[in-house]
């Protein structure tokens, strides 16, 4: 089987297209590159969606944490404490067990006249269940970053907004939110990188890989188990992740440039990827 055939057979294997059986003997380098690469689809899927939804939730949580109202502050603080204080691995296990315990034939919702049945089975599948956990997890970490950034917004900026007579919403929209993003962006980039790394945990933590449709590390682990040679599949998956990390840095760097475009060049902080351990 030539490498082109392998790509046709296994290029989209991770999402269930192509050959049904995984290669069992005579693993070629091409097999390993293609299959592990197809698993990367899941990592990117989890990472991008969790990041996208998590961003908005994190902003809301950060506002809640810095709020003067106890009813808004306490829940936000507790949420952040629970998700930042416990291992993601345990969160995955708990979520999976909780989703499994939901009634199999759905939860009846009585709407007075019509009775709806909320289907719950899809929650036990990795594409939904693990995504929810990753979403909540990254929201908590990002909220901590953003609330720190909110606290370090220069006092003068906010006073100037008040002096211009901006309404609360205008002040948030034009001053607070952009400044918060600008200050928190380097740390948030770091969080995004860690989130992509965390997606490799999904299929090792209770969520079953249905029909052997797994992520990059799932397939790398498959090859390492079958060939008893860790020196080929793991470096391959590591290489793929270095590429993903570089893409994240590039993308976030572009946003960073836009966020800082109004500053004098000497004041701009370049987004240099220095590992900040905030996880």
């Amino acid at each position: 089987m030539s490498c082109l055939d392998t790509i046709q057979a296994y290029g989209l294997r991770a999402i269930g297209l192509g050959e049904r059986l995984l290669p069992r003997t005579d693993f070629t380098l091409c097999d390993q590159f293609v299959l592990i690469g197809s698993g990367l689809i899941w990592n990117v899927y989890f990472g991008l969606l969790a990041l996208f939804f998590g961003f908005w939730f994190a902003v809301a949580l950060a506002m809640g944490k810095n709020s003067d109202h106890l009813a808004a502050r306490k829940p936000a603080e507790w949420f952040i404490f629970v998700f930042r204080g416990s291992p993601l691995f345990i969160q995955f296990f708990i979520a999976y067990q909780a989703f499994v315990l939901l009634p199999r034939d759905g939860i009846p919702i009585n709407l007075g006249i019509v009775e709806l049945t909320a289907d719950t089975r899809w929650l036990t599948k990795a594409w939904a269940g693990a995504l929810i956990v990753l979403f909540l997890n990254t929201s908590a970490y990002a909220a901590e970053i953003f609330s720190g950034a909110l606290r370090s917004i220069p006092k003068g900026d906010l006073e100037a907004a008040d002096a211009y007579g901006m309404s609360t919403w205008q002040k948030f929209r034009r001053v607070t939110f952009p400044t918060m993003l600008r200050l928190g962006w380097p740390a948030y980039t770091n969080e995004a990188i860690f989130l992509f790394h965390a997606t490799t945990l999904v299929f090792f933590s209770g969520f079953p890989a249905w029909q052997q449709q797994g992520d990059a590390l799932y397939y790398a682990n498959y090859f390492a188990d079958k060939t008893f040679n860790p020196f080929i599949p793991y470096p391959i998956v590591a290489g793929y992740f270095v590429i993903v990390t570089l893409c994240v840095i590039t993308g976030f760097g572009l946003v960073n440039r836009r966020l800082n475009r109004h500053l004098a060049p000497s004041q701009r902080q370049r987004l240099r990827f220095r590992l900040q351990l905030v996880r």
Partner: peptide, 11 residues
């Protein structure tokens, strides 16, 4: 920086 720690734990 670029590689998930779980890969190292398995490798």
């Amino acid at each position: 920086r670029g590689i998930p720690d779980i890969i190292f734990f398995l490798f």
